[in-house]
Simulated assay, not measured.
Amino acid sequence: MPIVSGLYRFPVKGLSPQSMSSVTVAAGQPFPMDRIFALARPGTSINSRNPSWAKKSKFVMLMLDQQLAEIQTEINLDTLELSIRKNNELLFKLNLGDQTGKLALERFIQNLIPSLNESPRFIQSIDGHFMDKPNNLISLINLETLRMIEKKWGANIDPLRFRANIYIDNVEPWSEFNWVGRDISVGSGVFNVDSRNGRCGATNVNPKNGRRDLNIPGSLRRTFGHKELGVYLVAKSKVYLAVGDYFNVPDIPIIEFAQPNFQEPSLNSFICKGCYFIYDEKIGCANSGVKPGTKFGEIQKSWLCPDCGASKLSFEKFHLN
């Protein structure tokens, strides 16, 4: 029976996780205090006074800014005091409840990340979160799936690369994919398993040193025919979770490696270097009004990646191998 082995929230998008021993999730709501703060990239149209959800490329985050993993942060959510360390040495503390503290963090992040020519803006969500998806989704990773991948690739993979809220253990690899569309329960609480989680370039960053030392989405696609690892949940009722709790899950046959029906893209395909979305000229992109057969060069320059919101300039020619 699956057991909860870890619970994490990420109060500031892109910064360090905070482990939890237990949590209560309200029905239909996001994981409490997760990604409630963020750093908006310079030049973005996000309203600092009234910010709402936006795609990940609008923010300072690991997919684009691996230097964030070079520091360790911890925020006291009662006092809003933020501690910043590097190599476990305390650099300074600041208070995000006042303007002086916010400006200090913004300047520090600009100096940390060479590609930022201006300071980002520290903002707080009015929608409840700055998760990668607009819905109130909660992310889950099956550690047995990760161990199977480690064995297959011959690599050690830190589970925190995937920045999930819930980590489970003691369940067959890939079984979580078979739960999509079904309910799983813990105690009297119920989650619906909403969808699989497509991974982006943030997972390539080693959370201990900020180096891009693996290609997680690309390796998943080459090995299994997709770039998905983990699933998203939606709380159908109030759920109390604690490390050591057991999940009740559907007892259904497991599809080996849980491979979807994957069609290799045509030779005229282009991939987003950030989130690994593939634009196939043969298929087009219905989500953004691009008709099948449209050559990539013919798409308007203002076109954005439909998954992460990155510019057209972030795409390159796709080669499966």
Rank of each mutant, 00 (worst) to 15 (best):
E316Q: 11
K152Q: 13
S266V: 10
P159D: 11
R9C: 13
N197G: 04
S311W: 03
T100E: 15
N197F: 09
G181L: 06
K152Y: 00
D158T: 05
V171T: 13
K86D: 05
Q72R: 10
I46T: 12
N111R: 12
A26C: 09
Y246F: 11
V180M: 12
Q29I: 07
E256N: 10
I113E: 00
S195V: 03
R199M: 08
E81P: 04
E228I: 14
K312V: 02
L140T: 11
Y240W: 09
I168F: 01
N156H: 10
P306T: 05
A164R: 13
L91G: 01
T203V: 09
T294H: 09
S139G: 09
D194K: 13
L7V: 11
V60K: 00
M20W: 12
T223L: 08
S314Q: 12
I299V: 12
K133E: 12
G230M: 07
G154S: 03
V60L: 04
F270H: 15
I254V: 15
R163D: 05
D132K: 01
V231Y: 01
M61R: 08
C285I: 07
A286W: 10
G218R: 02
H226Y: 11
E281K: 06
S83Y: 05
I3C: 12
E172W: 00
G293N: 08
N261C: 11
S5I: 07
N215M: 14
S139Q: 05
G293T: 04
N206F: 03
N215D: 15
L105K: 00
I216P: 05
W179K: 05
V60E: 03
E316M: 06
Q124K: 15
G289I: 13
K58Y: 06
A155N: 07
F130H: 05
D183F: 07
